[in-house]
Amino acid sequence: MMEYFLLFAGAVVVNNFILTRFLGLCIFFGVSKDFTASAGMGIAVTAVLTLTSIFTWLAYNYILVPFDVTFLTTVVLVLLIASFVQLLEMFVKKFTPTLHKMWGIYLLLIATNCVVLGVPLINIESDYTLLKSIVNAFGSGVGFALALVLMASCREKLKLADVPKSLQGLGIAFIIAGCLALSFFGFSGMITE
């Protein structure tokens, strides 16, 4: 149990995808202008990450490895994830229109996000079991959501600030991201596997 908890906590803060591995930055800067939107995006990413981690693991261990075609891993994963997200979008649209209203746009954005590909690849590289893969993916999603929400609240606070003209918009967002990453340095070396 402790092992899984450490894995989860490590994925959330110590190896935070955005702030220590610098993956998934397009969403991080794109959807962090508004607090509510960023919270929705965070939940969507967490859901997609957790679900995709299940069958990318299955596909890798029961198809790619037995047939000895692991060199196709990246291609297969990209295809799998993109088609799954598409499917999920159609499913959500059909069955829970309210959820689709909240998530719809984000789901399509996620399909091409590097975090969604990065997490399964890291799971495969670390030889995680199915349960560990799910925990790691869920933790990574929560960490992603955390960074996104923090970023959005900081950017909202700065909306009223007298930011120099040349830095307004993305410029100041990058500076905040740098400061956030600096603060997350405090967690480095905390959980070593």
Partner: peptide, 8 residues
């Protein structure tokens, strides 16, 4: 100062 100076 990049965030707008004192108070921001």
């Amino acid at each position: 100062h990049s965030m707008g100076g004192l108070g921001y």
